[in-house]
Write a protein that binds this DNA or RNA. Structure first.
Lengths: 171, 171
DNA sequence: TTGAATTTTCAAAATATTCTGAAAGTTTTT
DNA sequence: AAAAACTTTCAGAATATTTTGAAAATTCAA
């Protein structure tokens, strides 16, 4: 039956999303909730998510919060409803941008800070120290470069890369 | 004393590298071994690494293997030596390239495959199925785009972005 | 060959992360 | 102000990942 086919495909999608997410540092449940909301035409509340994914209230609550921190879902207050409803950002380009932005903040930011920090404590007054500082400096430069590249990619809508993307995306 | 200062800075570097690595999906020990080898002028053998980082032989062996898989260190067979020695790639741009390459392979590749896989099972014969396929397709497109962008960035030495980078890096 | 040196494996232990569910906290209704 | 509806917290339980270390496998010299 056709409806079953879709249900299965959706389940597969949710499951796959959850598995892949662990590969890239996001936890399984967070990814599954995200997938569920991505596929849901309507916004969902905590009880519905609990029932659907068979997970505890605490778990749902915590991961909904994280997903909001990542900017991947929004809270929706429905008139006449006490419960909070959640809806996912459906524009996948925006989703990708948000993920890139967040990962930049979490992964590159601390690296730059740490390297600056280490540089400060050392004077290049011996060959060994110079060699050490060379490496720290190189890492610093690569990280700042990666950070700048990502930032400009994400910011400017006029960016050639983005335009390039839009061309591909809309075809 | 000045030597102590350098020793401390190196330890801080190794420790920091290990901590940050967990943030981006690499395990702590692997990152620490990598950092240790990055800072070491000479190549090191398993016993030296064990002693330096105070970790077990099995752990060292396993992570050296992983680091070689990532293309971040090389095995060096010294003439007249039975033991295997390891040396890190010191060119940080190459290191960054290797990491990007490996992460592309691990993170984007499986995503593209999974989406293609899901698409195959579904015919767009109802509105719901069309809506579902729209999302899967969009993710597919974004992933392929990200994959292509990264690949071209990493491959072409003539790339504007790379040149841009070299300009910054060499100044 | 043999055996010493070295590397690899892998089951069990240690550690880290995630999840549960009931209690506490908050908001809204009556 | 009390109760009902709902959300948040968090200690302990469950699960997953990493590490150890001793045994097995491999390599090399004699």
């Amino acid at each position: 039956m056709s409806l079953m086919e879709l249900k299965e495909a959706k389940d597969k999608f949710i499951h796959t999303w959850g598995t892949l997410a662990t590969q890239w540092g996001i936890n399984r449940t967070m990814a599954q909730i995200h997938a569920l909301l991505l596929l849901s035409a309507k916004s969902m509340n905590a009880d519905e998510i609990m029932a659907d994914l068979q997970i505890s209230r605490g778990n749902v609550n915590m991961n909904l919060r994280d997903l909001m921190d990542w900017g991947l879902i929004y809270k929706q207050l429905l008139p006449g409803e006490r419960k909070e409803y959640f809806i996912a950002e459906k524009d996948i380009w925006k989703v990708a941008k948000q993920i890139a932005k967040e990962r930049r903040r979490r992964e590159i930011g601390p690296l730059i800070e740490a390297m600056e920090d280490i540089k400060e404590g050392i004077q290049p007054d011996t060959v060994e120290k110079e060699e050490f500082l060379k490496i720290v400096n190189d890492i610093s430069k690569v990280s700042v470069f990666a950070d700048n590249t990502l930032t400009s990619l994400l910011k400017s809508e006029e960016n050639w890369l983005l335009n390039n993307f839009i061309k591909i995306f809309n075809k």
